[in-house]
Amino acid sequence: MQQTAAGDTAARRALLLWARERLEGGRDGEIRDALRRMPSAAAASGLWDAVCRAVEDDEAASEHEVGVRLFAFPIVLVVAGRQPAVVTGTLAHPDAIREALEKHGALGAARNVGLSNALCARTALDAIEPSAVLRWSREWSGPPRELAPQEIRVERGREQVHVRFIVGAGISPRDAPSIVETASNIGAWGIPLAKLLMQELACPAVDLLALPRPPVGLLRAPLAGRQAEIEAAFHLFVSNTLRELRAAAGEPTAIVSAHEGAAGAEVRVSMSSVFDAALLEGFRWPLHPFDDLQRIEAVIAELLQACRVDDLRVIPKVLPERMGSGRLFLRGGDAGTGDRAH
């Protein structure tokens, strides 16, 4: 056991050194290539964690007593429009948000904290090279100015889930907890921040709910935001679909299945009624190369069980993109859907 632990520690250290060499040399392409070649989601996730740690625990800057730490707050936004509208992607009062976070203890020992006024999209953060984040953290220049705001176009009569990010930077002692740590208790500051954001983003004829998530390091933010966005969208789907199916035909059958197609892999949740074949709704959960399939299936099952869905079935094998009927989603009476999972 001790030999295994020592080997794991040595492997993690080797990954960290490998990541630091490439970050220092601006060799981001080599990092991307290595991530693509990883044999499993766990291996890819481990390599990406090493890259993130190499930036967050920058050894070259450790000689200084204080340092710059970059972070991002993922913000899940649920919107519904009574008519088409556009929700701004620019914060008019980022200082008021910073003051609220400071008042409720989220910023800890960090000083000179700056927040970008741009609510940026996940694609903007995905496009940032890891070596650029390392460079920004050494320049002491505040949150990156290259990030553009991304507005939200609201469609009439349909609830939508989006994720945006508030990016920031703060100077703090290297031996003090980071903002990621001091703001991990969302219960202390989540509601005040949500209220401020809903005031800032208020738009005529639009119902908007802001759901802030705990901050993460800048490189980790796209994945954290993606996960929060999909989970919020799934909650919305389950709530609406159960209400409609139960009102129309009683208790539904829910089927969880994994699919592989030309566009990649995904988990699907099909909800139908044995009493009305026309009632069939579905949700598609696209998989990222770092995703843990078992964790996602557990999250799905936990919510469905909490909503008292008794007829829950999990297909144990990977299915093709479309069924033989051409449908994307499964009905409870389809061949191969099995029996209840519990």
Rank of each mutant, 00 (worst) to 15 (best):
I191T: 15
H93C: 08
A61G: 07
V133G: 04
R295K: 13
A183I: 12
G187S: 13
A6D: 15
S131I: 01
E244T: 14
E59M: 11
S273Q: 00
V78P: 08
Q294L: 15
E129S: 15
G157Y: 06
L91Y: 04
V274W: 01
S270R: 03
N117W: 12
L201I: 03
C52S: 09
R135Q: 13
D95M: 10
A148W: 12
V216D: 06
A301I: 11
A5W: 08
N185M: 05
E56W: 10
L119Y: 08
G326I: 06
G142V: 10
E146Q: 12
R174C: 01
R213L: 09
M323I: 11
G187W: 07
H93R: 15
E321H: 12
D175W: 14
E56T: 10
E139F: 09
G170T: 11
R246F: 02
D33W: 05
S178H: 15
D33A: 15
A5F: 11
R82W: 08
H342C: 12
I75P: 05
D339L: 05
P84C: 00
D291M: 03
E99V: 10
H104M: 03
A92N: 15
H235L: 04
T123F: 09
D33G: 08
A278D: 15
P252G: 04
A176M: 07
C307P: 00
G105Y: 01
G333N: 12
A5M: 14
A306T: 08
A228D: 01
G105Q: 06
D291K: 01
A80Q: 14
G67L: 13
A42M: 08
R122D: 14
P130H: 07
L245G: 03
H259W: 01
A335F: 08
P222N: 07
I296G: 04
N117D: 15
E139K: 14
E281V: 09
L223V: 11
A109P: 07
P215R: 09
I75V: 15
Q150G: 10
E321F: 06
A96P: 00
I300G: 00
I186N: 06
S141F: 11
S40Y: 08
D292N: 08
G114C: 02
A183F: 11
G190F: 06
R53K: 14
M1D: 11
W18K: 02
W140V: 00
D339S: 06
V133E: 00
L201V: 05
V68H: 13
V68G: 13
P74L: 08
C120A: 10
K195R: 15
A6F: 06
G7L: 14
F165G: 08
M271E: 01
P149W: 00
E151R: 15
A110V: 02
A118M: 05
A5G: 05
R98V: 09
G108W: 05
P289W: 02
Q3P: 09
G324K: 06
D49Y: 03
G7K: 13
A43P: 07
L245E: 01
